[in-house]
Amino acid sequence: MSIISLQGLKKTYKLGDNIVQALAGVTLDIAQGEFVAITGPSGSGKSTMMHILGCLDRPTEGKYMLNGKDVSSLPRDELADIRNKQIGFVFQGFNLLPRTTAVENVEVPLLYTRPVMPAAERRERAMKALTAMGLQDRYDHHPNQLSGGQQQRVAIARALVNEPTLILADEPTGNLDTKTSIEVMRILQELREEKGITIVLITHEPDIAAYGTRIIAVRDGKILSDEPNTPRSTLEMAPEQIMVTAN
């Protein structure tokens, strides 16, 4: 069953007097348990696609079915609930709240869950998500006391805390070194393999896209290619490391 179904999706922006077409008719189906990497250079429309997939933006034209429900024209508050319960976001800049502990950062989505969740349950679920990321000992650390990889793992814990069916990762390795990037990719692969969570990854780096089971290349608001992929193993060494070894 396809978790995401896009039909003739178009998005136009008005920038001053110019009308920019960010998406020019995208039709796409993503099945549950896929690890889709969407690649493309900047300005290709992959970010717009990501925003629409994440229910942060609505298409100008076309239809977006999420878990069998048309969400392309839902009111804002319902979109907020869908983001809260069905989608987990992982951002390039981590977007953790400063002066807030790791566990409290993970709890943030639960604060907006309806019906209201008791504080004890929020804490329990947040600790569980942190434990899954191996950060249970760091729960009371503030983001500035954590490394980049640890921060991104807190962010992934936050994305997972409400047990979504879909994780949207927007350049999740953009601010990380190669070793940590591979670590993050391994976590995403494990989530797909062990929990069957669908993952949509946006990246402009081909070697990051290579960790997906399917690679979609976007250009000028259209799908350029859509190929299944044999995911690269995270046990494999990164190219830089190979070079270091060669020397």
Partner: peptide
């Protein structure tokens, strides 16, 4: 961020 994570207006 809070809006993205599901906060209503």
């Amino acid at each position: 961020l809070r809006i993205a994570l599901g906060a209503r207006r």
